[in-house]
Design a protein around this nucleic acid. Structure first.
Length: 467
RNA sequence: GGGAGCAUAGCUCAGUGGAAGAGCGACUGCCUGUUAAGCAGUGGGUCGAAGGUUCAAUCCCUUCUGCUCCCGCCA
């Protein structure tokens, strides 16, 4: 294909005015004028704003093609880049030729009309929704966040570890898992006991899609010191909410020679870094979100970048909730897991920003979290964000083999399945900690989008895997 | 898994037991250096599906399907 400019570069003034340029993209709107030309707004995904093309009636194919290029049609436009006479854009293109690559069949029923759509409707046309302002902006912000995460980690000398998607160990324990099997589902091989014989399956044992790369990444942490995973994870929970997906992306850093404070500091520094990246690099998209989606988005991101995160012990949070004067549906007492209403009160009403809750009762947390000296709490932390709830969950890991074994026994877990995880405590164990950031929750928080299904290109949820 | 709600034009939604409505979009015309333009007109419907009640059902009842929201699970 011949060389052409991105609309982003043209609007940024990277090409000299009065030179000939070519752009390729899709029509957002066309406004024909009887004054002898037509205004076409063309977008190519490179930035929020489209570029305005002035198509003069003198073009050979003006009546035959150009005027038929309705919203959604694809064009190659060549012309002179000039300072715009109109308001709303710095530059525009005075077209000398317009090639229509693809028209829109039946414009009346083309789903992406130049008018507001609901997010619910756009989910039913997920193959076309990236052409909208909102989903296009989400896509760029999502990319910006992902790139910023890798950049942050790289600058801090973390190694990105590609942990497996398929796991044959059933010891992850973070929820229901999707089974991976090549057995003939209509004719399953059975053992003598009448159970499915997974010895005959592809891996010779049961296999699943991962729910977390944590246990795997801990092994590399015990050699590379600073590591992280960033990839898709899967939960087969029947969760039907605006903040859960069956397939979602998670960032899981793991740091050696570190405790819970170091872990919280890392989470804070990373969130500040990536929020700043979005403020710096995606001002155009943020302006849109701030105007159309959530009027507090920019303010919120600036507050994260410019303020220390509030840190609060679970035990203190319980006291705050008990003395809040609020009537909660679920009563609060030490030892209970916090309900959404409690987390919301803390993050939204009490603090108004993300808050890091630390040191939870051991009975409501996972076996691998490090037991505190009080023997009642573990070194766990959650980052709670207004509107999203739990954005990050993490902990200092139990590095003492005897204590870990005690916890495994207490929870009645199959110790033999954790043999390689326990080995890490036998061979040069060190204090270490890590956390998991729900990437889509971060994108939702950053954009103000209310449903997590609108911040991932093709959302997977119970009963929903179209596209 | 528990609870609530919704389903009427391409989209967003009114509405009524007795002849299907608006706004936006589409199309046509007028107008215009216009900005999701303005003005006028035209077309567009198995009222989610299947049963039932009724002289008559888009409306009332039952079942089903789909979607949304809240809670739980968590990230």
């Amino acid at each position: 294909m011949s060389k052409h400019w991105s609309i982003s570069d043209l609007l940024d003034g990277k090409a000299s005015a009065d030179t000939e340029v070519t752009v390729k993209g899709w029509v957002r709107t066309q406004r024909p004028s009887k004054a002898g030309f037509s205004f076409i707004n063309l977008h190519d995904g490179s930035c929020f704003n489209p570029i305005q093309v002035i198509a003069p009636a003198e073009l050979d194919n003006y009546d035959s093609d150009v005027l038929k290029a309705t919203t959604g049609a694809s064009l190659v436009v060549t012309g002179r880049l000039v300072a715009s006479q109109g308001k709303g854009q710095s530059f525009e293109i005075q077209a000398t030729s317009i090639e229509v690559l693809g028209l829109v069949d039946d414009p009346a029923s083309y789903p992406i009309q130049p008018k507001p759509h609901t997010m619910e409707f756009l989910r039913t046309v997920a193959h076309l929704r990236p052409r909208t302002n909102a989903i296009g902006a989400v896509t760029r912000v999502r990319n910006c966040l992902a790139q910023a995460i890798h950049r942050f980690m790289h600058e801090k000398q973390f190694n990105w570890i590609h942990t497996p998607i398929i796991t044959a160990s059933d010891c992850e324990g973070a929820g229901e898992m999707f089974r991976v099997s090549t057995l003939d589902q209509t004719n399953l091989p059975l053992t003598d006991k009448g159970e499915v014989d997974y010895n005959q399956d592809f891996f010779g044992k049961e296999a699943f899609l991962t729910v977390s790369g944590q246990l795997n990444v801990e092994t590399y942490c015990m050699a590379m010191s600073k590591v992280y995973t960033f990839g898709p994870t899967f939960r087969a929970e029947n969760s039907n909410t605006s903040r859960h997906l069956a397939e979602f992306w998670m960032v899981e850093p793991e740091i050696a020679f570190a405790d819970l404070q170091d872990n919280a500091d890392l989470a804070e520094e990373m969130l500040q870094y990536i929020c700043k990246a979005v403020l710096d690099e995606r001002a155009d998209d943020l302006a849109f979100f701030n105007q159309r989606i959530d009027k507090t988005v920019i303010e919120r991101l600036e507050a994260i970048v410019n303020n220390q995160f509030e840190r609060m012990d679970y035990t203190d949070a319980i006291k705050v909730l008990q003395t809040s004067g609020k009537k909660f549906e679920y009563p609060v007492e030490w030892g209970v897991d916090l309900q959404s209403e409690h987390e919301r009160y803390l993050a939204e009403e009490k603090i108004g920003r993300p808050v890091i809750l630390m040191n939870y009762p051991k009975d409501i947390k996972a076996f691998y979290m490090r037991l505190n000296d009080d023997e009642k709490t573990v070194a766990a932390m959650d980052v709670l964000a207004p509107g999203i709830g739990e954005m990050i969950g993490g902990s200092q890991r139990e590095e003492r083999l005897d204590v870990l074994d005690r916890r495994i026994d207490e929870m009645d877990l199959p110790k033999e399945h954790y043999w390689w995880y326990r080995d890490l405590r036998r061979y040069g164990t060190v204090p270490h900690a890590g956390f998991g950031l729900g990437f889509e929750r971060m994108v939702a928080y950053t954009t103000g989008m209310q449903n997590i299904r609108d911040v991932i290109p093709f959302p997977r949820a119970p009963g929903s895997a179209e596209f």
